[in-house]
Write a protein that binds this DNA or RNA. Structure first.
Lengths: 178, 178
DNA sequence: CCTTGATGCCAACAACCGTTGACAAAGGAG
DNA sequence: CTCCTTTGTCAACGGTTGTTGGCATCAAGG
């Protein structure tokens, strides 16, 4: 089959995101990604250079933290995070990979410092205590993703979005303002 | 060098725990573990059969959740968890590996159901709401380990044990009793 | 002493990985 | 039509992995 180069590039990227999100960096092989995209492994190299660059492209994403009123920030953050997780595979890629790959961990630190921390400063208006507050928020949200989507603890999987927002929202709120 | 078979077995196991904890399942190769133990890779196979069985032996551990008064359970749990993490590599092994290895994830679910959940029931005396409460507790503790020891968010690394207990203790307490 | 069993090392296997270069086919430009 | 760029396939490379079987080496029992 013959496609435009832009088309195949996005097809490869989509397959890569799925594989990296499901299997992590090492187990997501170029050959498997190429097979998913119904294409020769050599094409992946042609369009992305090497595996690391392909991963960098697949892990590219934006948290898109919304503007929220201070009093609703906790619940809003939890809801936004849950939906972001299911809509954009970038976060899944980073979490699955960041645990065994230092480059991905570094990227998560960058996202934390460049997006989460400013968000917390914006909400609380307290630059002094913000770093620790922000990392407490991040720890709870990442723990949520870990136990619900990766380790799949049954009660966490069974819980509805509303239930999780109701339980975790106040916690995040306290980390932000307390 | 010639040792007793029991000695070499424990030497191999110690090296395996370190490697699995630091690198995760895939990157911790039999050859690297054997090199750490100053031994031939073939010895690892002789004593443990194959890599999966070696991993199972390395990931064997007990959370040893203490008896705690209900009012102090939150702070006590955080402190116990932090110290356990640093003293026993078993937890590190499981977290580093459970993200990309389904067998390790299954093991974490077993520990959750067999140790954390009964602990929560014991503390709260409420079997009905316990599963969700227990997984909220687990999510916050795992998020703590993830952001502090694996992803190494700077504010989380810089925080002292006391500070973390003071911040996270009340959260856990609320998940348990609220 | 010799025998026997346990302990350890070495070389090699098959499978898989990322990566490369040469070659085929398709399609638009002249 | 011919030419040439783009798109795709194929086979192979060097390296690493888990795993295996054969061979050396040591210690103890007779």
């Amino acid at each position: 089959m013959r496609r435009s180069s832009a088309e195949t590039k996005t097809v490869i990227l989509a397959a890569a995101r799925e594989r990296f999100a499901a299997d992590g960096y090492d187990k997501a092989t170029i050959r498997a990604i190429a097979a998913d995209a119904r294409i020769d492994p050599a094409m992946v190299m042609r369009y992305f250079g090497n595996k690391e660059k392909l991963f960098a492209a697949a892990a590219e994403f934006d948290l898109e933290l919304p503007e929220l009123a201070s009093e609703l920030a906790g619940a809003g953050l939890v809801r936004h995070f849950l939906r972001k997780w299911e809509a954009d595979e970038g976060l899944q890629v980073l979490l699955r990979t960041g645990v065994t790959n230092e480059a991905a961990a570094e990227r998560m630190r960058t996202i934390f410092g460049g997006q989460v921390l400013p968000f917390v400063v914006r909400i609380t208006g307290d630059p002094a205590g913000a770093p620790l507050r922000a990392s407490l928020v991040a720890s709870q949200l990442l723990g949520l993703a870990l136990s619900r989507y990766i380790l799949k603890f049954p009660p966490m999987v069974a819980a509805s979005e509303e239930e999780l927002v109701a339980r975790l929202g106040p916690t995040i709120q306290r980390y932000l303002t307390g």
